[in-house]
Amino acid sequence: MDQVLLITGGGRGIGAATALLAAQRGYAVAVNYASNSLAADEVVRAIRAGGGTAMAVQADVGDEAQVLAMFEKVDARLGRLTALVNNAGVVDVQARVDEMSVARLERMFRINVIGSFICAREAVRRMSTRHGGSGGAIVNVSSAAARLGSPGQYVDYAASKGAIDTFTIGLAKEVAAEGIRVNAVRPGLIDTEIHASGGMPDRAFELAPTVPMQRTGSAEEIAGAILWLLSAEASYTTMALLDVAGGR
Rank of each mutant, 00 (worst) to 15 (best):
M1S: 06
M1G: 14
V4G: 10
G9L: 06
R12P: 03
A19R: 01
L20H: 12
A23D: 06
G26D: 04
A28W: 10
V29E: 02
V31K: 06
S35D: 09
A39R: 01
V44H: 02
A46L: 07
A46H: 05
R48D: 04
R48T: 05
G50Y: 06
G52Q: 00
M55A: 01
G62K: 07
A65R: 12
Q66R: 03
M70K: 00
K73R: 14
V74R: 07
G79E: 04
L81C: 04
L84A: 10
L84H: 02
D92K: 12
V93K: 13
V97K: 02
D98R: 13
E99F: 00
M100N: 08
V102Q: 13
R104L: 14
R104Q: 14
E106M: 11
E106A: 10
F109A: 12
I111D: 08
I114L: 15
G115R: 00
G115M: 02
G115H: 06
G115L: 01
S116V: 09
S116E: 07
A120T: 15
A120W: 09
E122F: 01
E122L: 12
V124A: 09
V124T: 12
R126T: 14
M127I: 09
A137L: 03
N140T: 08
N140V: 12
A146G: 05
R147F: 11
G149E: 12
P151I: 02
P151M: 10
G152M: 13
A159T: 15
A159P: 11
K161V: 09
K161L: 07
A163G: 06
F167I: 10
V175P: 09
P187N: 11
L189K: 10
M200T: 13
R203A: 15
L207V: 10
P209I: 12
T210Y: 03
T210K: 10
V211W: 10
P212L: 05
P212N: 05
M213V: 14
Q214D: 09
G224E: 14
G224Q: 13
L229F: 04
L229G: 02
S231P: 07
S231R: 03
E233I: 04
S235N: 13
Y236E: 01
A240F: 08
A240L: 08
V244E: 01
G247C: 02
R248S: 13
